[in-house]
Amino acid sequence: MIYETKHEFMEGLRTALAQNDVKDAREIMIDFEQHFDDGIAAGESEADICRKLGDVEEVVKQYISDDDGGASANTANTANAAGNANTSGGINTEKTVFDTEQPQTAEKTVYDSGQNGGAQTGGNYNYNNNSTNTSTVYTNVSGNNPDTGAIIIALCLDVFIYSWALPTLVGLIFGLAGAAIGITVSGIATFFSGVFGFFFDVSAMVSTGLAPLSLLFLGITLTSLGGMLVVGTVSAVRGFINLCIAIINQHSRAFTGRRILNSIGKKKEAAAQ
C-alpha cells in the first residue's frame, strides 16, 4: 500500500519487516528515514516521497529475495546473455535475459514462509517513536561501523579527561560562580549602604573610611563586576555541558557509529538513550 506521510510509511515498513522477519531491520529503517529527511530537506512533500518509494510490501519483498540470493542472479544472467549474443545467437539470449518469472516465484515462496515465521517474532524490534515530527529518530543505534581508531582516541582522552581536565574545570567553575555571587552581593550591599549613608546617617559610615558618595559608586562598580562574572559563569557552565555532551558523543560514535545527543543551544531534542 502507498502511504501519505513519513510516519505512516515508517510504521508500515516496520510492520512489514517484522512480519517477514527481515534481518537488519534497524539499519533498513535508518536508510529510509534518511531518505525521507533528505527528501524533505530538498523540498519534496512526504506524500511525493512515499509515492516514489512505492509499495512498502514490494520493497520488503526485495529484502527477502536478498537472503534468497535469487535476485542477484539477474546480473549474472545479463552477463551470460551478453556472451551468448555473440557466440550462439538470439534464442538463448532471449531465454536468459527475459526469463523473468522464475525469480519472482522464488521471492513469493520465501515471502510466504517468512510471513509464517513472522507471526512469532513480529513486534520484537525495538522501535522507539519518541515524537511525531519529521525529525523523529526511529532507531538509535545503527549497530555497525565501530571505528577502532576512534575507540583508541576515546580511551586515551578518557585518562586525561577524568584524571585532570574535568576536576580542574569543575573547580574553576565553582570558584567563578562563588566569586560572581560574592562580588554581586557585596556590590549591592555597598551600594545600599552608600545610599542610606548619603541620605540619613553619615556617622555610620565612618568606620569604612569612605565618603557615602564613594561607597555609592564603589557599590555600582562591584555590582557591575559581579554581573559580568555571573554572565561569564553561565557561559562557562554551558560550555562545560557541551564539552560533556561532546565527550559522550565521541564515545557513542566510537562504539556505535552514531551520535546520541545534540549540543545545547542548537537543538533541544535529543535521541533518547
Binding site: 531518505h35 520493497v59 536478498d66
Partner: peptide
C-alpha cells in the same frame, strides 16, 4: 520504484 534501490544496495553490500 525508488524503494527497491535500497534493497539493491544492501544486496551489493552483502
Amino acid at each position: 520504484t525508488e524503494g527497491t534501490i535500497y534493497p539493491l544496495m544492501k544486496r551489493l553490500k552483502d
